[in-house]
Structure formats: structure tokens, C-alpha cells
Design a protein around this nucleic acid. Sequence first.
DNA 1: TTGCGTGCAAAGGTTTTGCATGGCA
DNA 2: TGCCATGCAAAACCTTTGCACGCAA
Lengths: 148, 148
Amino acid sequence: MKKDSGYNTKQKEKLLDYLVKNKDKHTNVQEISAYFASEGTHLGITTIYRQLDKLVEAGTVRKYSFDGKTGACYQFIDKEKDCHEHFHLKCLVCGKLIHLDCDHLLNLNHHIAEHHGFIVDPCQTVFYGKCAECSGLKPHSHSDDSEE
Amino acid sequence: MKKDSGYNTKQKEKLLDYLVKNKDKHTNVQEISAYFASEGTHLGITTIYRQLDKLVEAGTVRKYSFDGKTGACYQFIDKEKDCHEHFHLKCLVCGKLIHLDCDHLLNLNHHIAEHHGFIVDPCQTVFYGKCAECSGLKPHSHSDDSEE
DNA sequence: TTGCGTGCAAAGGTTTTGCATGGCA
DNA sequence: TGCCATGCAAAACCTTTGCACGCAA
């Protein structure tokens, strides 16, 4: 793993700050760019991509490439919360991202490894479906279309 | 779900034929295009995209958008084999697609639904990692996520 | 000063759209 | 015949790369 090499620039600092503030959700380059544009602080697209790339290599940020339309998504990794050992659930209706801390799921990993000889990488794997609100288990009047 | 509306054209027939023959793996537009080019049968890129889109809406084909570099992948759904009730494993190294028929995994679905109130859609969910060959035959020093 | 960081422009790749033509029903 | 399907070209996007200038150490 590469070290967090490089200088401390304002851009890098601001980007990291934004990522930390939004660590609970997946974000993407255009969202970041739009945010800084609205803030009056311009941040070049190229810089965002390159800094993000370095952060991913440094293990500070996780990259998800599951959505071809909006491009790749990024998320800050909170190392203190040990976020790298659990799976994520993503609601296809409302887009909510859920962190799943559960022994049962880690068990799953071991099961697949032992019985199927396959090493699952939780960092790259996201479960898609409907969250409690959107599936009707809880009262939630989110009458969004998004019919599959 | 929309019906399979539309005329039966040669292009549509050939595309579907190709998809059925390759239903065991994920394919993509450029692969399809290259195949028909090598066969001497030209199939326009636009047609492939549009037919694929219709097939996805009709529920005949599944679309995966996990790789931003190579673009979206598509796979024919074998309804007779009831392929929609199991998960898929995809090796990030060799690209192999594994169908996982396992009660333990279905159990997982129930567990998440009951304990976390989340309805996982197996059709949209793919586990990413390394298959037995790619993770076992190679003398890798069990480095966590040092890819490549 | 040295060398990385930045950002504009341009390139490369995937997917979509416009439009005229061709084919199915 | 009426539509839908096709396919070329061009556009729309996302991402990467080249290059010159700016800034951190």
C-alpha cells in the first residue's frame, strides 16, 4: 500500500474535508464538482479525479463502479469505525446506503470461502434491493416510480 | 413489466441467439459487436444497445453496470432454470461468472429481510472477489486488498 | 530551487440521439 | 400501408492524458 505521499494543497484539504463530511453516503465526481462550484471554490475536474485516485490507492477512499450512468462513486473510509469488514446495502428506490454490521454476514464470507472456494471482497460488493421504508415494511409515503 | 413488443427482425433473432448461447457468462456490447463482425454478419452498435435495452425492460436480459472501464455487461436470463433465485459470484481477476446454488445464501436473504428489514434483490446483486483458481493457485501473500 | 499539484484542453471510450431508409405485420 | 427497426453520424458523458504554470517543501 502506498503512502499518502504528496504535498498538502488547499484543494486536497478541501476535497478530503468534503469526503469526510459525506462519509455516510456515496458521492461522485460531478457531485463534488458541483458542490465546490456552488461554494464559489472552484476545483478542477482533473484534480478531483487525480486526488481521488491517490486516496483510493492510499486506502483512504473506496471506489464503487456499479453505476454506468452517473459514473463511479466514492466514499471516505472511516478507519476508526473499521468500515472495511462489513457489507453495504443500497436501496434501489431511494438510493440510501446502509452499513451492515452483522456477524451473520461475516459468516457468509467464510462459508463461501470454505464451501465454494471463492474469496468475496466486501469492498467491491454491494447488495441491491429495497430498504424497509421503500418496501413497505415501514410506513413511508415515498411514492417514487423507479419500478424495475 | 413490459411485454416483448416489437417485430421479429433478423437482428433481434441473432442477438437473442447469441445471448442464449452465452448465457453462462457476462457479455458486453463490444463483445457482441466483435462477434458478429467476425461472423461476417454486421450488427450495428445502435441496434445492439436498443435491442438490449428492450430485452432488459422485458425481463429477458439482465444488465450489470459494475465496471466503468469496459462498460455494462449483459446476461440472458434462463427462466426455465429459475436463475433468479440464486446469487452470482464474479471473479475480478479472470472474469469468470459462478452461479451459486446454495441454501445458505437463500438463508442470507431471509436473515437480512427479518433482521435488517431489507429486501435483497439477487438479480441485481453480484458478489465480487477471487475465484478458487485465481486466489489459490497464485502464491499471493494474503495481502488484503492490494489488487493487481 | 526542485518536483509535485493544478487546471485547461484534447483525446479515448461508452452510450444515446437524430434522421433517413428499410423491413415486418 | 403504417409503424417500428436499423444504422450511420453526431452528440452527450465520463474519464484519462499532455502540457505549461503555480505552489509546497
